[in-house]
Design a protein around this nucleic acid. Structure first.
Length: 400
RNA sequence: GUGGGAUUAGCUCAGCUGGUUAGAGCACUGGUUUGUGGUGCCGGGGGUCGCGGGUUCGAAUCCCGUAUCCCACCCCA
């Protein structure tokens, strides 16, 4: 038997029903906030992700499905959604047209990782990207929108918030931090590695010894430049004004290099170790990194599988008709009757001749509202027998 | 990439220290004196015991390898 590759899942019942339910309602909500559908290819040039997500990130460094295609191009299955959308945005010259453009997308992403709870090699994200709006009210509004989505599905979460600074205040801070790390002995191996790759991540270390050593370390939230600080204040004050609870997490570091200023994650204790159900932030420099005109932007993505893991499927409701014959002679009339019904209703047609009891069982299993039967008696009288499986009443309708 | 646990029917699992034709529940399917489901009763189909080696008279059972799944590290949605 040929099986799906490691970490890759087929979407069948009942997951498929959850998936449709999620897309339908999330789409409805984000459209209210002015987002419109966009789709970009799953396969992109490798350079796109190297320049946007960043070569120092784990995603680009070791998790990409990268290969050379038949034309000799260095290509990748997209590991995340934002880079492709920004490329599409710049390629369509939307940066030159200007204005405010908001897009949503959903689809598969690929990362070559060891699978575990809530983590797959092919997984799905639903994301939004807002271009052209630098006002931090947009940051707050996006967080409010995500909250509306998660609340609609009734999941538990907490919002974690941080400011990552900008090209004015982050690099000096990073240098300060690295000198501090260099001057301090006793950090664990992971932290020494982080010092080289992504120094801010040391704050995330779970090793209690490292946490102790970090006590006197410089902190970004007290090193933010005036602009970053005042923007972040607006975000938090706006959230306060609409009574949204959040936690300031100075250790929140996003794994993608393009983020700046506002960064947030929606985490849930109902998930496993992979507890982020949604995450995102501002990326004001990314459009120009990808050869566009400077355009402020902010976006986020929801991990669809992680969200679906937390939602309950509502019971499938009875709908439509089930058609069955009690004798071979009835088959022809039954088929034509079913065909006519199909013009206005969902119809499941069973082709086998079976007992009434067997057909009723079949109708029940098919979640049909009505069970329509033709047997010898009905054929003789030119009628079809119909039972309403929910109301438990029966009627005879003339064949037509 | 590093650990730990698992792998027997479609699903959840039982199968003791290796010993005759590998079991259960659920699911599926059919019947159940008259044409009434989701909820009675009886029957039926379905398994090269993940795969490959090895030990043995004999392996689902012991050993080695390997694949996949689950969980965690790491990282992130």
């Amino acid at each position: 038997m040929i099986k799906a590759l490691k970490g890759m899942k087929d979407t069948l019942d009942p997951q498929n029903r959850k998936f449709e339910y999620f897309i339908e309602n999330t789409t409805r909500i984000v459209k209210k906030y002015g987002y419109s559908f966009i789709e970009s290819p799953i396969l992109e040039e490798t350079i796109l992700f190297k320049r946007s997500v960043g070569e120092s990130s784990d995603i680009v460094g070791k998790e990409m499905y990268q290969f050379t295609d038949k034309g000799g191009n260095d290509v990748c299955l997209r590991p995340e959604g934002t880079a492709g959308i920004v490329r599409a945005f710049v390629e369509a010259k939307m940066d030159r047209i200007g204005g405010i453009n908001r897009y949503f997308y959903y689809g598969p992403m690929f990362r070559y990782e060891r699978p575990q709870k809530g983590r797959f090699r092919q997984f799905h994200q639903f994301g939004c990207e807002s271009f052209g709006e630098s006002n931090p009210l947009e940051d707050a509004n996006i967080i409010i929108m995500i909250k509306e989505i998660l609340d609609f599905f009734g999941v538990n979460y907490t919002i974690e918030l941080n400011s990552l600074g900008c090209p004015t205040c982050l690099p000096p801070f990073r240098e300060k931090l690295v000198s501090f790390l260099n001057a301090t002995e006793g950090f664990c191996e992971d932290c020494l590695r982080r010092r080289e790759t992504n120094p801010i991540r040391v704050f995330d270390c779970k090793n209690p010894n490292c946490q102790t050593l970090l006590t006197p370390a410089p902190r970004l939230n007290s090193e933010l430049c005036q602009a970053c600080k005042s923007d972040f204040d607006i975000v938090t004050k706006t959230l306060d004004s609409v009574n949204i609870n959040y936690e300031l997490n100075p250790n929140l570091v996003r794994g993608l290099d393009y983020y700046s200023k506002t960064a947030f994650e929606f985490v849930s204790s109902d998930l496993g170790a992979q507890n982020a159900v949604a995450g995102g932030g501002r990326y004001d420099k990314l459009v120009e990194y990808l050869d566009g005109r400077p355009t402020p932007a902010i976006g986020f993505a929801i991990g669809i599988e992680r969200l679906l893991d937390m939602i309950e499927l509502q019971e499938e409701k009875r709908e439509g008709y089930y058609f069955g014959a009690l004798c071979g002679e009835a088959k022809e009339s039954l088929f034509s009757q079913a065909h006519k019904q199909l013009q206005s209703d969902k119809v499941i047609h069973n082709y086998d001749v079976k007992s009434l009891k067997a057909h009723l069982k079949g109708a029940d299993k098919a979640h049909a509202r009505y069970c329509a039967i033709i047997g010898e008696d009905e054929l003789k009288n030119g009628v079809v027998w119909i039972k309403d499986l929910r109301e438990k009443n029966e009627e005879l309708r003339p064949l037509h």
